[in-house]
Design a protein around this nucleic acid. Structure first.
Lengths: 177, 177
DNA sequence: ACAGCCATGTAACTCGTTACATGATTAC
DNA sequence: GTAATCATGTAACGAGTTACATGGCTGT
């Protein structure tokens, strides 16, 4: 009996759905570069655990490789069954988006803090927001209009609007604080 | 030796920092109404576990009560030590905001889905977004300019801008899809 | 020879969840 | 009397984290 898969399992499956065979290590790097913007990138060890699980369930298949410039390892690809399972998951109703907004949490409890410290917190967050926006714009630009990653481009555009809204709101807060 | 507290512990502590004594049950309700907008509201059982932990650490204090219209129970209040601990936490650097955006995740893997099903997913999310915005505006309006909950009002305003940005981005995506 | 990256895993642990158990009070 | 709400917990589990362990390959 195979245990039920989680969103993280499908994240790994999803990264393999773009056609390239990937090692656990490469999967982690991909996750850090793409998934990170709208989901949580799993830890290295979690990636390997998911790969074991997905292999056992027959959704991915490993192949041993000896690549130049790297120690021997394994690369994974989707099986036909994995492809079907992924499609089914993508088409199943998505749970609501979850937000764990620590800086907003601090603001909510602002009556407990020194006002200058609170403002500093928000300004630090503003800096990170600006950086995130720059990364997102760089990602969007690097994609161009490659139809292969059309949806990734849309996600990037969506993320830009979302973060611009957050930045506008934050500036408003800093004004009124 | 008391175990280290988590963000959830401080959430409970934070809800008690507005001055009212609250029961575990009331804390859960408050969390669902306020925290929910920018963080995760803990489950009922988690709230009780945190209260035990915070009591043991001397950060909150319980008092037995018999209120009309309810079975006997306990209400909690912050201790001076709890107040200090909370201030220290609020003033400590906030981790970055975390997003687990399931609908964006589905869009990212849109190449695996039937286009009509994908669009439907996004339209369902749009509906929820509109509802969230309405709730946030209602919360903001109900607060008025009560200086006691000034920061909560700012969080609501911030949330409105953020979600408006997300909605704009989503409509753009739906246009281009 | 040593730093740094590529690569794979195990062990211990924490957080938080769901399911379950219990029972008082109030309104119908 | 019975359903809904208020109220408090326990037990079992799951998902994911950090810390640790291991080792090969490449460039300086």
């Amino acid at each position: 009996m195979s245990q039920p898969l989680t969103a993280t399992s499908y994240a790994v499956l999803g990264l393999l759905s773009f056609g390239r065979e990937l090692s656990g290590y490469e999967l982690k790097q991909d996750a850090d570069r793409t998934l990170e913007f709208f989901y949580r990138a799993p830890s290295m060890s979690q990636v390997y655990r998911e790969l074991d699980r997905l292999t056992e369930a027959g959704l991915v298949k490993a192949r041993s490789v000896n690549r130049p410039g790297a120690p021997p390892g394994r690369v994974y690809r989707l099986t036909a069954q994995g492809r079907r399972a992924l499609t089914k998951w993508v088409e199943s109703p998505a749970p609501r988006a979850e937000l764990r907004h620590h800086p907003a949490f601090r603001l909510f409890l602002g009556h407990m803090a020194n006002p200058a410290v609170l403002r500093r917190q928000l300004e630090d967050h503003r800096q990170r927001l600006v950086e995130t926006l720059a990364s997102l714009r760089a990602v969007r630009a690097s994609i161009g209009d490659d139809p292969n990653v059309r949806h990734a481009a849309l996600v990037a555009e969506w993320g830009i609007e979302l973060h611009e809204g957050e930045l506008r709101g934050l500036d408003q807060v800093l004004d009124r604080l």
